[in-house]
């Protein structure tokens, strides 16, 4: 059962990711991105990362996807119903990417990965909080500066008189 659910979620993720990069309509791409994010969330749950799964839904689906749809709406004339976009050199791109993914797949299945014994943690939130406040305090503060910079930068860039 869990096996079936895993492959279903993997198929959902990869299928909608394929839609994202191949759909003719930009809005269809954006909505396929929603299903990709939800599929990746499911894979996070399989990887025992419950906190990260919730963060993924809140930040990606609630934040980034809404931003992207806003971006589509603001950069196209809504009166023209057909918000389409084109791709160039699809054949060459597909060929190169196919070679790339087969090389990666060969590498993944031929490398003897070292796996350590693991057990499912009762809660990950507490462990992540401890690490953030102790081992990773400096990156944490740097990330807060980066977010402040991005906030000011994005506001300044999108002002009318800039």
């Amino acid at each position: 059962m869990a096996d079936f659910a895993f492959w279903l979620i993997a198929a959902l993720t990869l299928g909608s990711a394929l839609m994202v990069v191949s759909s003719k309509s930009l809005l269809y791409s954006a909505y396929s991105l929603l299903f990709t994010f939800i599929g990746v969330t499911g894979l996070y749950v399989f990887l025992w990362a419950d906190f990260l799964a919730v963060v993924q839904v809140v930040v990606y689906v609630g934040g980034i996807l809404v931003l992207i749809i806003f971006g589509i709406m603001l950069t196209n004339k809504i009166s023209s119903v057909n918000i389409s976009h084109t791709s160039v050199q699809k054949g060459v791109g597909a060929l190169v990417v196919l070679g790339f993914v087969s090389a990666l797949g060969l590498m993944v299945y031929s490398t003897p990965w070292i796996q350590l014994p693991n057990s499912e943690p009762a809660e990950t939130t507490k462990l992540i909080g401890n690490l953030l406040m102790m081992d990773y305090l400096l990156p944490f503060e740097a990330a807060s500066f980066l977010l402040l910079g991005a906030l000011i930068g994005a506001t300044t860039l999108s002002r009318k008189d800039y």
Partner: peptide, 25 residues
Amino acid sequence: LISSILFSLGLFGVVTRRNGVAVLM
């Protein structure tokens, strides 16, 4: 394997799309 396929699809989108928002996706 799943993540490398996802990465390759993203790469395909970046190199073939010509719309800025689609490249961001």
